[in-house]
Write a protein that binds this DNA or RNA. Structure first.
Lengths: 230, 230
DNA sequence: TAAGTAGTGGACCGGATGGTCCATATTTGT
DNA sequence: ACAAATATGGACCATCCGGTCCACTACTTA
């Protein structure tokens, strides 16, 4: 017989909490974790829903995205969303991770397929031009947008931002080191500094693009950045 | 006898509108503008209040600053604020202009007092370190923050951002041209491109600083930026 | 002092916000 | 068939949002 039957817990609370696979005693400490048991199956794909949420946060930012927006985009009811993701902020944190996975995966394979480290770096920087040309929305980069929106106001978000930036840095570091091995970037340049520099440059380009800078100006900046690597 | 006495306007409306020095006919078109006449004087300094508002928007961004926050910071009542500034957005636009005047003034006098164009540029870039060191809040730059928050969503705000960036660009262009005259930057570099590049670099540094980058990384990036000018 | 003018505090507004709760529906295990 | 587990739709919540309105107050001029 399950232990919670013996506990003097208000029945509604007990039921709700069992609902999430946990049992709490009245002091709210966890006394037992149940393994997930069968029940009514989800009617939506949590993975696809998460991607939808990510796209929305990416375009509109955290504060400017309302729960209603999310509900519409993810096409699920409020209870389902809260059941599956807990809160707006928790959902956002998962979106940040998802974004990192998504972008880093793309960058890694682009780097692997690139003819040279420098060619990859050039294409990386030039990706900002697509947005500036206006054929797609200037939504920037979710990680950088979040850094700007939150600064260090919330420690959890700050950590997510730092992790995201770290992953970008890592890919760029690999690219710089490869370019050094290939002889395109002098070996006496500090690769870590150059990777930082590239993250910073990309960030500046994204912001200027959002501010409406024209393609010619952005190209000039990119040329300058590339020149300074050599 | 004033014209509005002869107009069949609901008396309350007429009173309110005379209050703002305007008389509207029922179709809401302006039929007469009165010159401001004596009355009860303001109990606050609109200039100081505007500065307070600017500081708040600067720290917290537009969406994340509520009217209540503004009321508290500016220390005036809702009616006074709306009477004096019209709306949150109108107030924000005035804050943007105020910020531009404030910062550009500072930069200009710093440039005038600097021993050389390059010295000014170095100090300009290094100003980001103050925030990163943590002795003051990492609030970034109001213009760049706004570019990131709004992208091109609102045309009026976008125009204000573009104007603000343009003014920064102008000062940096002057600095670059001076440095070229002084022989520190080669004359065959395009000064306009370099000024753009400096705006972009500053933007990147600010974002990274907000994201919590350590001083050493930022110094490395600054060194790289300066090197690329020469 | 009366008339005219303008500023202020605060009540009030409709609507949106993020979040909770519950009755009900749908599944699996016994 | 029935109990247990989970999902879902939607009503509901307090709070806050930007903004309006009005009674009252403070001031200037004639």
């Amino acid at each position: 017989m399950p232990i919670y039957y013996m506990m003097p817990i208000f029945s509604r609370t007990r039921l709700m909490i069992r609902n999430q696979g946990l049992i709490y005693c009245t002091e709210r400490s966890i006394i037992k974790r149940m393994k997930t048991s069968p029940g009514r199956p989800l009617e939506f794909d949590p993975d696809a829903a998460l991607t939808d949420a990510m796209q929305l946060f990416w375009r509109k930012g955290y504060e400017n995205t309302s729960m209603q927006d999310l509900l519409d985009a993810m096409q699920l009811s409020k209870s389902s969303l809260y059941q599956a993701f807990g809160s707006k902020q928790a959902l956002f944190e998962r979106c940040m991770t998802r974004y990192g996975d998504f972008m880093i995966g793309q960058l890694r394979s682009a780097l692997d397929g690139a003819p040279s480290g420098v060619a990859f770096i050039r294409r990386f920087l030039e990706s900002v031009l697509d947005e500036a040309r206006g054929d797609c929305e200037a939504r920037g980069c979710l990680v950088l947008n979040t850094a700007n929106e939150f600064a260090r106001r919330d420690p959890r978000i700050a950590a997510a931002v730092a992790e995201g930036l770290g992953r970008f840095h890592e890919v760029l570091l690999t690219a710089v080191q490869r370019a050094q091995r290939e002889g395109d970037i002098p070996s006496d340049h500090d690769a870590v500094t150059l990777a930082n520099y590239l993250v910073s440059s990309m960030s500046g380009l994204k912001t200027l693009s959002k501010a409406g800078a024209d393609e010619t100006s952005l190209r000039g900046i990119i040329r300058q950045v590339l020149k300074s690597l050599m």
